[in-house]
């Protein structure tokens, strides 16, 4: 069985020293090892942005796509070979701005893909513009007077869109994050894990200290029931979206793959593709 070291490669990430993304990378590597994966059975699909580079930093099959389209690519991989474990990851701009349409529909579709959003509330790679996750009044290069748009709540959106697994974590809490990624991988369906990942270069407001002060860990509420959707929505609103932990999980809804008529457990990519003369004749006969 592979250890987390086997999910490491020799590429030095081009993230800024202190970037939250380092811990997320480590958490993915640990979680992959903890659930018993081998590198060749994991595909990490990533979007564009600082965070998008992550697929190149994990020793596994990696696909670095185009901005905002990480989820359709990841779903394509899963449909083609459901025996692969598919992790999709990208930033808050990638998933909640340009890719928001895909995020909502991937949630609805509920393919067995784990989506890890590295949420730093800013556009880092383009050097500091506002993101849908930026707070109102947040001053950036593109909002010199402060952002005048409301902050998007991906957790509320996910719940409304029918999500079967919603979690949130903080890159400094490696233990919780690793555990949530493991749970996400094991979850039979789409899992959204939003991770606060401070940008030390362009976001001087939402810093490590700021998160430590503002985060509400669900562990504080021993009675919290993550299978209760109404409670989950209330909790998100009560904490202004600053809660961490497993927020909601629905284990009764089947994954998309399990609902597709005639879809086999064996990866489609492994199945024979040549049709037989008999099958061909039957198809052709319908046009007579």
């Amino acid at each position: 069985m592979a250890t987390f070291k086997e999910f490491r490669n020799n590429v030095k990430p081009n993230w800024c020293p202190g970037c939250g993304d380092f811990s997320i990378q480590a958490a993915i590597q640990r979680a992959a090892a903890n659930v018993g994966l081998e590198p060749e059975n994991l595909a990490v699909i990533s979007g564009i942005g600082c965070s998008g580079r992550i697929s190149g930093y994990i020793n596994a099959y990696g696909f670095h796509g185009i901005h905002g389209r990480v989820l359709p690519i990841a779903q394509g991989v899963k449909l083609a070979n459901r025996e692969m474990t598919v992790i999709a990851s990208g930033g808050d701009g990638d998933g909640f701005a340009i890719g928001m349409g895909h995020t909502v529909h991937a949630i609805r579709r509920n393919l067995n893909v784990t989506y890890i959003v590295m949420d730093n509330q800013i556009y880092g790679l383009t050097k500091g513009q506002t993101s849908p996750r930026s707070a109102e009044g947040f001053k950036t290069k593109s909002t010199p007077e402060g952002s005048i748009e409301s902050t998007l709540s991906p957790l509320e959106i996910a719940l409304s869109a029918g999500a079967t697994f919603v979690a949130q974590s903080f890159s400094s809490d490696l233990k919780q994050l690793t555990s949530l990624i493991e749970q996400g991988i094991k979850h039979e369906g789409f899992s959204l894990i939003n991770v606060f990942s401070p940008c030390v270069t362009f976001n001087k407001i939402n810093t490590y200290d700021w998160f430590k002060e503002n985060i509400v860990n669900l562990e504080q509420f021993p009675d919290y029931d993550p299978t209760n959707r109404v409670l989950a929505m209330n909790k998100i609103m009560e904490t202004n979206g600053m809660l961490t932990g497993l927020i909601y999980q629905n284990t009764t809804r089947k994954s998309y793959e399990d609902l597709v008529t005639g879809f086999k457990q064996e990866g489609l990519a492994k199945q024979d593709i040549m049709i037989t003369p008999d099958q061909f004749d039957k198809l052709v006969a319908e046009f007579k």
Binding site: F63, Q75, G76, A80, V260
Partner: peptide, 29 residues
Amino acid sequence: PKFGGTVVQTEDEIAAVTMAIGANYAGVR
């Protein structure tokens, strides 16, 4: 479905083509 496959009606054409790219990458025509 008779051949083990399926059609996904996506949310838009960008999703359609990128899903097709992901699936081709993973080995299904």
